[in-house]
Amino acid sequence: MDNDDRRVRVTRRTVLESGTATAALMLTGFPEVALSAEPLSDKAVAPVAVDLQINGQSHTLHLDPRTTLLDALREHLALTGSKKGCDHGQCGACTVLLDGRRINSCLTLAVMHDGQSITTIEGLADGATLHPLQAAFIAHDGCQCGYCTSGQICSAAGMLGESRAGMPSYVTADLAEARPELTDAEIRERMSGNICRCAAYPNIVAAIREAAGTPT
């Protein structure tokens, strides 16, 4: 398939094989329809049923096993808060919480998480009350373009849980210390899996520092 052809005909197969899901979305604005417009190629495999608990709600999806958790969220459930930055574990924009622990949703398959709970940025607030991290990011101007922000906030939520559980980081001076103090250096190291192309880092650290002092 040459490039021109690809531009006009995005099939489910090309999406799954080359990861052009974002292109499909930009072209059609409506992924589900675009993706099912063409029959599966003979090389594709039958969809698999997957039960996911997402933000407290259960969903049963029928997915090609190739579907990443990120694509399941964005393309099948229209939960577009989780972003696709690199699709290779290199930026953190796709960070979600899996059973409370932060992971990159781009580097895992939805089928691997059958029966598990996922929290996305859409599930952090308590009704109209923002999560303390969301409030702190607003108060400290923790975003510029905003593309990395949902990943930053989900990652920070996971990070504060790890810190409260006493997990160490690379910069923890004494590994034997049961609960290393969350200094700015610790926050920076622990948040290094979230890249911000706008370099809003000082304000992100300030927001997290404030939220760390707020009980959740």
């Binding site: 953190g92 622990r101 992971i103 290094s192």
Partner: peptide
Amino acid sequence: YGVLSRALLSGASAQLRNK
């Protein structure tokens, strides 16, 4: 086994290490 703990913590990111 501090050398192992430190080596692991130097690798990848927290999200990746969780998987």
